[in-house]
């Protein structure tokens, strides 16, 4: 298994390298420092979401409700400020909402034992519905004067690096620390690798799973704040989009298997870089949106097929329920 993981990561990295090289040679204006920063900046939010997803996937779960966590609590911040509340109070409310949301997710999955795919599908719907029905007046929540200064989270630069990249970097460091340096992180790997064994060994797996979803929702909320700050509004309609599929792609392509227990922050970064390079190069080439998706899909498919040829799955070692 270990060899296998290493190889998928390598393949994706190779595809990334080939694309990057090709674009650098053939595309004028691709390999400039400015464009490199733009490339990263464009996928920073995707990358942050990928980190949240990675955290859950490593623990053998999946969190479809991330987009709801991205859209609703930050939207609530903007809406509350618009309605005249102070920014700190609004932020606190949003964080509390996110924690509550993560707790609901975690409880459903860890204690009520609802499969994570289904549970988060439904809770995401619930949160998005709540936002639509009770929290927001309009689905694009606009920036207001009370938010003045907060847009620094997503706009401008810190030491010449666009802020959203810095935010992505911070998120990477935090998640890497959580996963690699804390006992909690080790437990997540243990649970993802073999939940039954983890439980038998005495790891309090249920509270850890709950915490995992709380942290994931929190990261999702953070990504939402960065996104809102960078476009000066919160288009909550993003919930209807297929963004979540891109997030899953980043994670799985980077080499974090959906069966859990494998991978880390590096994988997310590689997956993000691959997607970012493709999107950036094709935007420069002015390929239409549908065309971009087609090319993106085919490249991803080729990467996955190559992987299956180099590392064929064995019927004997295939894990049950590993879809």
């Amino acid at each position: 298994m270990k060899r296998f993981r290493f190889n998928q990561q390598e393949i994706v990295f190779a595809v990334f390298a080939v694309l990057f090289l090709a674009f650098s040679i053939f595309l004028r204006g691709f390999l400039t420092p400015e464009n490199m920063l733009t490339l990263l900046q464009n996928v920073a939010v995707l990358g942050i979401l990928g980190l949240a997803m990675a955290l859950v996937v490593i623990g053998r779960g999946i969190d479809i409700s991330l987009i709801a966590a991205l859209a609703v609590p930050p939207g609530l911040v903007l809406q509350m400020v618009q309605n005249g509340h102070s920014l700190p109070a609004s932020l606190l409310t949003a964080v509390l909402l996110t924690i509550a949301f993560g707790l609901v997710n975690g409880w459903l999955i860890a204690y009520a034992e609802v499969p994570s795919l289904f549970a988060t599908l439904a809770t995401g719907l619930l949160l998005a519905g709540l936002g639509q029905a009770a929290l927001f007046q309009l689905d694009v929540v606009q920036w207001s004067d009370g938010m003045q200064g907060f847009e620094r989270l997503g706009q401008g630069t810190i030491l010449g690096v666009p802020t959203s990249i810095v935010m992505f970097a911070i998120a990477c460091v935090v998640v890497a620390f959580l996963l690699r340096q804390t006992r909690w992180g080790a437990y997540i790997y243990a649970i993802g690798d073999n939940p039954y064994a983890a439980r038998v060994t005495g790891i309090p797996s249920r509270p850890i799973i709950v915490l995992q979803y709380v942290v994931a929702a929190q990261i999702g909320c953070f990504a939402g704040l960065v996104m809102a700050a960078s476009v000066n509004s919160m288009p909550t309609r993003v919930f209807n989009s297929t963004l979540i599929y891109d997030v899953i792609l980043v994670v799985v392509l980077g080499g974090i298997g959906l069966s859990g227990g494998r991978g880390g922050v590096l994988n997310v970064i590689i997956g993000t870089l691959l997607i970012g390079t493709m999107l950036n190069g094709m935007t420069i080439m002015d390929i239409s949106y549908a065309g971009q998706n087609l090319v993106k899909g085919v490249v991803l498919l080729l990467a996955v097929i190559t992987d299956s040829f180099l590392n064929p799955r064995n019927e004997e070692t295939a894990q049950q329920g590993d879809i």
Binding site: N35, T38, Q41, N42, V45, V140, M227, S230, V231, S233, P235, R237, V238, S241, L279, N280, T283, I284, D286, S288, Y289, A290
Partner: peptide, 17 residues
């Protein structure tokens, strides 16, 4: 001439590039 799919974030990414 790109479609941003009515999405502000995508519009920003395209415009930046």
């Amino acid at each position: 001439s790109q479609a941003a799919d009515w999405d502000a974030a995508k519009a920003k990414a395209i415009t930046q590039t």
